[in-house]
């Protein structure tokens, strides 16, 4: 299958010196769903924001992130205005975290949805917005779209955002923890709707359990690097950090979750060796000095291949 998104050696430094991403390589195939997991501060959201050029002014970005649309390659890093116009809302759809915060409270949901056309200087065909809404399972769309966000439930409003993100049939949909503000019961259905509506999906998700149902592949980020990637990561974690992450999730009937010892590293400092080594029970002496290389899906020399 064709690769639609190719990220190579991507690094981001924020204006305050925080190295949010430190050399990330990722590929996303057409129609694939790749989940990005990791703690807050691991760089997951930064990755999405680089692609949309939504980083704060003064951030330094190096490396490359290429969106490949039928042979034409668009470089998202340092994109000019014309490229940005093609990427934002066009080739790249975006679904945010908190559906109520992401919708302008002064606008009706319908206006918000139609804005997906108007933002790109187009006019929605008559009934197009309603059609999109119904495609993501919003019933009685005509009447409901006239209402305001505060009259909608979070789950339904997130569907409206999904509808908005998919208006121009984006090649890749970027979703930034789309279920973190929703009730647990709604999370699974909302993810299913998102998965069904999107073509290729880059899904940032801190909860590995939800990921398993929709993701074809999972990449785990720690301190701005991919530490593990694979198909079966949530069920069979291999990297010590992923194991700890899985163990930290509560599983009813399995006793108390194990807390991850220590704290995340200070990303404003230059890190040498494996960033996880100080918290790792299996760390060798060399782990503190040598950068681990991603080999066979795991960036850890200790893990048996």
């Amino acid at each position: 299958m064709a690769t639609v998104l190719k990220i190579r050696d991507l690094a981001v430094t924020y204006p305050d010196g925080t190295q949010a991403l430190r050399g990330v390589d990722l590929d996303l195939a057409e129609g694939e769903c790749l989940a990005l997991a990791g703690e807050s501060g691991s760089g997951k959201s930064t990755l999405l924001r680089v692609l949309l050029s939504l980083l704060p002014k003064g951030s330094r970005v190096t490396g490359s992130a290429v969106v490949d649309d039928d042979g034409t390659s668009l470089e998202a890093v340092g994109a000019d205005r014309a490229t940005l116009r093609r990427l934002r809302g066009g080739l790249l759809g975006y679904v945010g975290q908190d559906p109520h915060a992401a919708a302008d409270p002064l606008w009706s949901v319908g206006r918000h949805l139609r804005e997906a056309w108007r933002a790109r200087r187009m006019r929605p065909a008559k009934g197009a917005a309603e059609e999109r809404a119904e495609a993501v399972g919003i019933t009685q769309a005509r009447a409901r779209l006239r209402q305001y966000p505060h009259q909608w439930s979070g789950g339904m409003l997130q569907r409206a955002h999904i509808a908005g993100a998919g208006v121009h049939g984006p090649l890749v949909t970027l979703a930034d923890e789309p279920t973190s503000a929703l009730d647990a019961g709604l999370a699974a259905t909302t993810l299913a709707v998102l998965r069904a509506d999107a073509r290729a999906l880059l899904l940032v998700c801190h909860d590995l359990r939800h990921v398993a149902a929709v993701a074809d592949r999972v990449a785990v980020l720690y301190a701005g690097r991919v530490v593990e990637t694979g198909v079966d990561v949530p069920a069979r974690p291999r990297h010590p950090y992923t194991k700890a992450l899985v163990a930290a999730a509560p599983r009813p009937g399995h006793g108390l979750p194990e807390e991850l010892p220590g704290t995340s590293p200070d990303l404003r400092r230059e890190l040498t060796g494996c960033a996880f080594a100080p918290r790792c029970g299996l760390a060798l002496e060399s782990c503190h000095r040598e950068d681990p290389v991603l080999d066979d899906g795991v960036a850890c020399p200790v893990v048996p291949r």
């Binding site: 934002r88 809302g89 945010g96 992401a102 804005e115 933002a119 790109r120």
Partner: peptide, 24 residues
């Protein structure tokens, strides 16, 4: 965040200022 959504959808700076910023 709603202005961020607008940016991510490709809305221009002036459009966001006029339609999201000023009304708020």
């Amino acid at each position: 965040p709603h202005s961020e959504t607008a940016r991510a959808r490709g809305a221009g700076r002036l459009r966001i200022l006029a339609l999201h910023g000023l009304p708020h």
